[in-house]
Each structure stands twice: as structure tokens, then as C-alpha cells.
Design a protein around this nucleic acid. Structure first.
Length: 227
DNA sequence: AGTTGATCATGA
DNA sequence: TCATGATCAACT
């Protein structure tokens, strides 16, 4: 029987992080929440980020860290991902905000997307809606770094999307653009506005956008990890 | 308003 | 049925 206790400090090595993460496998969110002494929501209608924050806490991520990776000293980004009984993702994966102004000179190799996903600790969790949150089971976490093909796939989509943004087409971009990386609104609500580039190069107000990994892409990551 | 964590819910 | 567009909460 595996023993798990809530750590009180950040992991000092990848190895330590992975030991902690692997010890979560098989636990339900209810069991883990009990150890952390937090209440499990009946559903995620309001607390949509609850699972991610629980796992962060239980792996010893420093709370409220901004802009950089969850485990900055290790260069590791943590992502929970809801899956069904076949191991297929049930949701897309948020990566980061998309820059909509001052984008001249931004290259893929220095982009937020590329840097965010250089090293990701994926924590797959049974996310089937017919299972109550407290009974949802944590699967086996694994570390992932994009391979050459995956890097190229994301780069192609990223460059297409950034080109459209630079050309003042941001408001014509839909989630259908991009094969593996998509651009979608990312805000508290529809009234949130930020600056963007208009069709004639002027500054416009537009909804903030975020980059998301499409399910097809994360599905392949999961398949590779468990094959 | 911006960024972190994401899932919800409705139109196609 | 399912992805897109919208939304929720905490913290800064």
C-alpha cells in the first residue's frame, strides 16, 4: 500500500516530483481532498479550476506563482487532464494567453506557448461527468516533452495564428483555425476587453484570447505515454 | 484588467 | 453528440 502525505515544500528534483506524483495514482479526488483537508465540490459549475489547484497543492507547487511554470526551478508545468474510460481527453488544454499587440519579432522559439510546454507533468484524471467529483480517480501521471513532430505541428499552427493576429484578423479567428493548437476567448466574461490590432493596423478593443491544445493532440500524448 | 487554474452549456 | 465560445474563482 502506497503512503502519501501532503508535502510542505516544493520538490527539489524531478525525481522527487515524480515520486510524489506517482503516489497519487489510484487515489480518488475525494480521498486526496480528505488528506488535504479541503471539501470536494458537488460539481465544477463554479469551481472549474478546483482539481488543478488540489493537485498543485498536493505536489507542493508554490501557490499563486505567476507566468512561469508551476515548478519553476525544475522547469516543469503541471497540467491535469480529464479523460474518459478509454483514456481520451474530455477537454482541450489551456496553454497561455495570446499576445495581441507588440507581436513584431516574436518567434516560435521564444514564444510563451513553446516555453510553457517544454516540460509538462500530465496528471490524467477520470473526468466522466456521470462520476461525482469525489469519486473521480487519478490515473498515472507522466512527464512529457514535445518531440520533433509535435513541436513542428504546434509551431505551424502557432505561426498561422500569430500571422492572422499580426494582420489584424484576430476577430476573424475561430477555434477551427489550427489543427492542434487553437485560439479561443479566455476571460471572466464576454465584457472583458484588451487591446488588439485592427484591420487597418489601428488599436482595437477585443476579447482576450488564449491558446489551447486540441483534444486530438493531447490524445496522442496520452497514447504515447501508455503504449 | 490580467493571469493562474480549468469546465460549462448551448448551437450546429 | 460534441466542439466552440463563454464563463467561474482566486489572486494580483
Amino acid at each position: 500500500m502506497k503512503i502519501f502525505s501532503i508535502p510542505n515544500a516544493e520538490p527539489q528534483s524531478i525525481h522527487e516530483l515524480m515520486l510524489r506524483a506517482e503516489a497519487l495514482a489510484g487515489l480518488t479526488l475525494g480521498e486526496l481532498a480528505a488528506m488535504a483537508e479541503v471539501k470536494v465540490p458537488i460539481n465544477f459549475k463554479r469551481e472549474k479550476g478546483w482539481t488543478g489547484q488540489l493537485i498543485e497543492h498536493c505536489l507542493g507547487a508554490s501557490a499563486g506563482s505567476k507566468t512561469q511554470q508551476d515548478f519553476a526551478t525544475l522547469g516543469v508545468e503541471l497540467k491535469t487532464i480529464p479523460i474518459n474510460e478509454l483514456g481520451k481527453p474530455l477537454e482541450t488544454t489551456y496553454v497561455c494567453y495570446a499576445p495581441l499587440t507588440n507581436i513584431a519579432g516574436i518567434e516560435w522559439h521564444s514564444s510563451s506557448v513553446k516555453n510553457k510546454i517544454q516540460k509538462v507533468l500530465w496528471v490524467p484524471i477520470d473526468g466522466r461527468r456521470e462520476i461525482s467529483p469525489q469519486n473521480r480517480c487519478i490515473a498515472t501521471p507522466f512527464l512529457w516533452t514535445p518531440n520533433t513532430l509535435q513541436d513542428m505541428q504546434l509551431r505551424n499552427d502557432w505561426e498561422e495564428l500569430m500571422e492572422l493576429i499580426a494582420l489584424g484578423e484576430v476577430e476573424n479567428i475561430t477555434a477551427k483555425h489550427g489543427q492542434y493548437l487553437q485560439l479561443r476567448p479566455k476571460a471572466a466574461n464576454g465584457s472583458a476587453l484588451t487591446q488588439g490590432i485592427g484591420k487597418n493596423g489601428q488599436v482595437i478593443q477585443t476579447r482576450p484570447r488564449g491558446f489551447y491544445l486540441k483534444k486530438e493532440f493531447t490524445h496522442i500524448i496520452l497514447e504515447n505515454a501508455f503504449s
